[in-house]
Amino acid sequence: MALIEIRGLVKAFGPVKAVDGINLDIESGEFITLLGPSGSGKTTVLRMVAGFEDPDAGQITLDGKDITHLAPFDRNVNTVFQDYALFPHMSVQENVEYGLRTRKVPKAQRAKQALEAIESVKLSHTADRLPHQLSGGQRQRIALARALVLRPQVLLLDEPLGALDRQLREEMQVELKRIQRDAGITFIFVTHDQDEAMRMSDRIVVFNHGRIEQVGTPQDVYERPATRFVAGFLGVSNLLEIPSAQSDTSKDATISIRPERIRLAPSSYQQRSGEVALGGRISEVAYLGSNTVFVVETDTGSRISVTTLNQELPTQGEGFGTGDRVLAVWQESQAAQISG
């Protein structure tokens, strides 16, 4: 039995169905990411697990117990909010002690546990400060300590790194992952940043329009996207219609092939077995330092993107340029069939 089981979850705000029938199992100790564009329903699902929103239909169980309609204070889950939601009139230590106070932990023990939690995020020297005296990254860590000190079964994180600058965000990604491993707590992480999702997650749940598009490991969703949406949302993908004659099934099929799995060859190139080759003309070349992106207009009327890694210094006069006729070549096994 999974730690969290979500069945047929529905939530509408007025005429808009924010969450439209979601089923999801979350295993104990897992780092699972709800990924999707804004308005895709991921945050609403998180808020229903936390208890801030009451579902219109469906069920959520935690450890076999139905928590669908329980109040937030009756669930063993805690939340790290997008803008931290630290109490502005309380010191760092009082903030971290707040949850222990609601659980009637005696004063001395409360202080001890709070200081340990503050130390675990390496901010012992800020215990007496007020939140507005901390930097964004420090507030983020205190919000984390405030939730973790309660040893919840599940920690919910609502775009917690969204307000941080890039370098700090990358540090916090590593830090969060370490904390999750050490504490062995299940993390449900909401983000719209696919790099962040790929970097941190055991599994990714891709949301769109209030529904789940695909659930899988980062590799699953990247290499074998189930839908056009997933293929386009995680990284760049070329979606190509394959006429029924060439596909396995009798229907027309769509395949997804990643730009870095395609290489360019001179039009004289002899295609080997197991390879697919499409003829076309290069319409754009973008040199990005570590790699170069080519756009090829194929003879069949598609535009495909091809990325080559610049492993060596480019030699003058070598390589393809705009207007060149080329073959875009890939191994047939590298492409993924898209169903929807």
Binding site: G51, A71, F73, T79, F81, Y98, T102, L150
Partner: peptide, 27 residues
């Protein structure tokens, strides 16, 4: 008062009266 302070308070286990007493009144 930002709405998420109310969410945070209940998330950390506080019922209505404690939220009023410890969060709303001081603010």
């Amino acid at each position: 008062i930002p709405t998420n302070l109310f969410d945070a308070s209940s998330d950390l286990g506080a019922r209505g009266f404690m939220t009023i007493y410890r969060v709303v009144i001081p603010l």
